[in-house]
Design a protein around this nucleic acid. Structure first.
Lengths: 341, 341
DNA sequence: ATTCCGAATGTAAACGCTTTCACTGTCGGA
DNA sequence: TCCGACAGTGAAAGCGTTTACATTCGGAAT
C-alpha cells in the first residue's frame, strides 16, 4: 500500500521514452507518433498508473475544480441544487468540492478561504443566505471574487467578477398573494423561515400585494420559524401558538414547502376544509408539495434552469468569454389542491 | 486578478526570514521565536497570502481530503448522509470532494479513479448500491482499497482495507413484517426500489418473515419501482396497476419512505381506512414519514450514528490505528399512524 | 548535393511548498 | 575556559507534473 507510488518516470522508463512524451500522451497533445503512444499507453495500463493531481495542479495552477458552498446539504432544495451543479460541472470536465457551511457568517468566510487555498477555479454560493442585507457583511464575497469568479444562486449582488441567477421572488409572491386575496381570503399569514435573504424579498412581495389590495398587515401576520427545516410539527405549533394568541387567519403563504406543509397540518387539525375554508401556497414546488394531502399549490422557482444558467455562465467566464452578470427568471405558480381557482 | 499570486517567497522577503521559517509558522511547528512568528504573521496578513494547496499537497502527498461518492445527492436520505459526513470530516480537519455518480457501474468506476488521482486520503461510498450482488462487479472497490481506505455505508464487503457500517436490514424488515402479520394482515406487498443492494436484503427479510408465519409469497407480492425517487404519483400508480391486475393486499412494507408514502396515497384513494383496513411501514424514518397524513410508521436505520461510526473509523485508520472492520447497528421501528399496535 | 523545415522526442526549468541537514549563537555545567 | 546541548534559523533537495526550448532526423525543395 505504500511501496513507491508509480510516477511518470516509471512509465517513461518502462516505455523507453522521456517523461515529456508520457506527459504528451497523457494530455493527448500534438506530435506523438502512434507507435510511441501505444507503448506509453501499454505501460500505463500495465502499471495502473494514475497521474498525481497535485503535481499537475502545481504546474497548471488549476485543478479543474469548482467549489460549491451550501449551508446545509440535507436541505431538500439545496440538495437538488447541488445535484444539478455537480452533474453539469462534471459534464464540463470539472469536479466539485463541496462545503457545507452552516448559517453563520464566520463559517462561510472560513469555507471561502479554504476553497481559495485549494485553488478552485470558481465558486458557487448556493443559496440566498450567502448574501446579507447589511452590505458590509458581504465583503467576503467581494474578496473571493478578486481571486475567482463567484456564482450566486438565488441572490443578487453587483461586483466585477460576480454573476447571479435567480427568480423574481418578489413578483412571484406578490402574484400568489394577490390571487389568494382575489379568491376571497383576507386574513393571510406570511410564514417565513427567517434565515434566507430572499425571504425578505418574498416578505416584501407579500406586504406589497396586501397593501395594493387595501389590506393592512400587522406584525403578527408575519410569522416565522427559525429551526430545523425538518421538524414539521414544530413549525405547525408555531402557527398554533399564534392562533392561540388570538390571531385569526384563513390562508398561509409560505417561504418553502415544508412550512406550507406544516400549515396544511395545522389547518386540518383545526378542522378547516382545504381549500374551501383555508388556502395554502408553498414555495419551490418540491416533492413535499405532492407528499402532502391535500397536495400543495406551490411556486416553482425553476431551480434546474437556474443551475444550468449559472454553470454555463461559469464555463463561459472560465474560458474568457464576456458573460451577462445577471439572469432573472420568472417563477411559476403550480396549482394543486390547497387553493381554489 | 492575475498579477503575480503571492507566494511563500514574498512573505519570506517581506518578513526578512527564510521560506523555511515561514513554512514553520504556517504549520506552527516547533522552534520559532515569538518575535519572528509575529513578523511573519504580519506579512501574511498584510498581503492576504493563502498557501497553495497543490504545492503543499505535492510535498505532503495528502491534501486532507476525503472523497464522498453518492449516486444522487438529491436523494433525501443520501443528502442527509452527505451532510453528516461533511460536518464530521470538517471537524476532523478534512474536506470533502463530492462525486454524484448516478447508478451505472461505469460511472462509479470513473468517479473512483478520479478521486484516486486527486489523492484523496480516503473514500466513502455512501449507499448500498455501490456493492453489487455479483462479486466481480465489486472489483473496482477492491482496487480502490489498495490505494486508500474505503468506507461503505449500508453495505457489507470483506477486504483488507474496507470498512463498513450498516444496520441489520434483514432483521428490521423481518420484525416489521412479523408485527404486521401479527396484527392480522396476511396480504402484504413488499415494495422495493430495485436499485439498492440492501433492498434485496430487506426483501429476504420480508420473505423469511412470511414463510415463518406459514404464509406463501408470490412473485407479484414483490412490487418494485425503478424510477425517480421523487415521483410519488408514479409510485402509487404502480400499486394501482398491480391491484387492477387482480392483486389484493392490505399492507405494504416499503424499502423507503417515499414508496411508503405512495402506498398511503394509494390506500386512501382506494378508500381504505388506515390503519384499520390497511397498514404501511416505511424505511429510514425520514421527514417524509411525518409529512404524510396519516404519518407513517417507519424503520429508523440510525443514519447519523452510522455516519459517525464510519468517520471515526476512517480517522482512526488514517492515523494508523487498528480499527474494526464492521459495525452493525440495529434498526428501530418508529410507530406512527399507519400501523395498529 | 545542399538547404531548410517540420515532425518526433528529449532536457531541464519551473510550479510553491515541506523538511532534512547544517550552521550559528547562548547558556549551563564541569 | 571549554564543551555539549539546544533553540532558532537558513540552504537546498525533493515532491510529480507541464512546457519552453533544444535536438535529431528524414525528406521536400532548390
Amino acid at each position: 500500500m505504500k511501496e513507491h507510488t508509480v510516477t511518470i518516470y516509471d512509465i517513461s522508463e518502462k516505455a523507453g521514452v522521456s517523461i515529456a512524451t508520457v506527459s504528451r500522451v497523457l494530455n493527448n497533445s500534438s506530435n506523438v507518433s502512434d507507435v510511441t503512444k501505444a507503448k506509453v499507453l501499454n505501460a500505463i495500463k500495465a502499471t495502473g498508473y494514475t497521474p498525481n493531481a497535485f503535481a499537475r495542479g502545481l504546474g497548471l495552477n488549476t485543478m479543474k475544480t469548482i467549489g460549491i458552498l451550501c449551508a446545509d446539504s440535507s436541505d431538500l432544495y439545496l440538495a437538488k441544487a447541488i445535484y444539478f451543479f455537480e452533474e453539469q460541472l462534471r459534464e464540463n470536465g470539472y469536479d466539485s468540492l463541496l462545503c457545507c457551511t452552516g448559517y453563520a457568517l464566520k463559517d462561510k468566510k472560513a469555507a471561502v478561504n479554504l476553497l481559495i487555498s485549494k485553488k478552485v477555479d470558481g465558486m458557487i454560493l448556493a443559496g440566498s443566505h450567502f448574501v446579507y442585507p447589511d452590505a458590509g457583511d458581504n465583503n467576503y464575497i467581494f474578496e473571493a471574487s478578486e481571486k475567482v469568479p463567484v456564482m450566486l444562486l438565488n441572490a443578487e449582488l453587483e461586483g466585477s467578477n460576480i454573476y447571479c441567477a435567480c427568480t423574481d421572488d418578489h413578483k412571484s409572491i406578490y402574484k400568489a398573494t394577490s390571487e389568494m386575496i382575489a379568491s376571497g381570503i383576507k386574513d393571510i399569514v406570511y410564514f417565513n423561515n427567517a434565515r434566507s435573504y430572499s425571504g425578505s424579498l418574498k416578505e416584501r412581495g407579500f406586504k406589497d400585494a396586501m397593501k395594493d389590495a387595501g389590506l393592512e398587515v400587522t406584525e403578527r401576520q408575519l410569522q416565522f420559524y427559525d429551526g430545523s427545516g425538518e421538524d414539521i410539527h414544530e413549525m405547525a405549533s408555531r402557527l398554533e401558538k399564534a392562533a392561540a394568541a388570538g390571531l385569526s387567519f384563513r390562508g398561509v403563504i409560505a417561504a418553502d414547502d415544508a412550512l406550507a406543509l406544516s400549515a396544511v397540518k395545522y389547518a386540518k387539525k383545526k378542522g378547516y376544509r382545504i381549500p374551501e375554508d383555508f388556502e395554502v401556497i408553498g414555495y419551490n414546488d418540491s416533492m413535499l408539495a405532492v407528499c402532502s394531502d391535500p397536495e400543495i399549490t406551490s411556486i416553482d422557482n425553476k431551480l434546474e434552469e437556474l443551475c444550468q444558467k449559472l454553470t454555463t455562465t461559469l464555463m463561459g467566464v472560465l474560458s474568457g468569454e464576456e458573460m451577462p452578470k445577471k439572469t432573472i427568471l420568472s417563477g411559476e405558480l403550480v396549482r394543486r389542491q390547497t387553493t381554489r381557482n
